[in-house]
């Protein structure tokens, strides 16, 4: 991992921990952004962690760009010593795979897809070596995921699969982005899953939909009264496959402001995770469901 610093115009510094995605790169980015926030550098206006990089926005009238760069570089040593552990939460997110709404949308934009004859799931299954969409769906929901970035549009989480790299699913984005994606679509691009927080443009493959609102500017949803955005970087997610009946029932609960997602407090330790991935994930599942 070689850190790369670069200016984004005269108001931003972009710091790439690594070109490729890994949890090590994410943790280093998280540690550095924590260090930048703690340092309370005069002139810093935004600190934004991403998957394997982060960005700092600053006011060059208050701090010279070269001085800002020197401040960040000085914090890198601090971040490297930080322990790769965080106290977070694991959340169960219900997903209705192969739902009619994303299906209608993916058929509408078929000419923008790598495989105009099939569906996004059939294509993803085939290029990842699965015999059927059902097997691919099982691979998608049988291990937990890690929120490594929130962004693109308001409250959209990027999720990274907590398995060895050889087992990670990878799919390209659409050849040309769609102009429409249903709200709460569960998508996939590169090595990341995502949930589209609002309806709109998008380039990720579409696999299903969750009945859970994850962005609510009115803050009436039962679990979004404190803040309108549900996800934070570091959250751990377990997808729960549901059918149409459960989707409808859950959606009705969400809309009636009485749905309470299954959430448990957990700690995540990267070193312990890397030492025994399956064993660590089993413990996360125990924490979620109780033993």
């Amino acid at each position: 991992m070689k850190t790369r610093y670069t200016f984004g115009g005269d108001e931003h510094i972009f710091v790439e921990m690594d070109e490729e995605m890994s949890l090590d790169a994410f943790f280093k980015s998280l540690s550095m952004t924590n260090a930048v926030r703690a340092a309370q550098i005069d002139g810093v206006t935004e600190v934004c962690p991403a998957n394997a990089s982060f960005q700092v926005k600053f006011d060059p009238d208050r701090i010279k760009p070269d001085d800002m760069l020197a401040e960040l570089k000085a914090l890198e040593a601090v971040a490297e010593k930080a322990e790769k552990r965080l106290n977070t939460r694991i959340i169960e997110i219900p997903v209705f795979y192969q739902d009619p709404w994303t299906h209608e949308t993916l058929m509408r934009f078929r000419e923008r897809h790598q495989d105009p004859e099939g569906t996004d799931l059939d294509y993803a299954a085939r290029i990842n070596g699965y015999d059927s969409a059902a097997d691919f769906i099982t691979a998608h929901h049988s291990s937990p995921w890690f929120v490594s970035m929130v962004g693109f549009v308001a409250g959209l989480p990027f999720l990274y699969q907590l398995v060895e790299r050889e087992r990670q699913l990878e799919v390209p984005k659409y050849l040309r982005p769609r102009t429409d994606t249903p709200k709460q679509t569960v998508g996939y691009g590169g090595c990341f899953s995502c949930i589209y927080s609002v309806r709109g443009a998008g380039g990720y493959q579409m696999f299903g939909i969750t009945p859970m609102t994850i962005y609510d500017p009115a803050q009436t949803t039962s679990y979004l009264r404190d803040f309108m955005v549900f996800f934070s970087p570091g959250d751990i997610v377990k997808w729960k496959p549901i059918d149409r009946t459960e989707y409808d029932a859950t959606l009705a609960d969400v809309e009636a402001n009485r749905y309470e997602p299954l959430i448990k407090e957990v700690a995540f330790d990267l070193t312990a995770f890397n030492a025994d991935i399956d064993g660590y994930n089993a413990k996360l599942m125990e924490a979620l469901h109780g033993v």
Partner: peptide, 14 residues
């Protein structure tokens, strides 16, 4: 790894 296959793709960042 994680960027996607097109040369204009990167691992998603800010």
């Amino acid at each position: 790894f994680g960027a996607g296959s097109d040369p204009s793709n990167i691992v998603d960042g800010c």
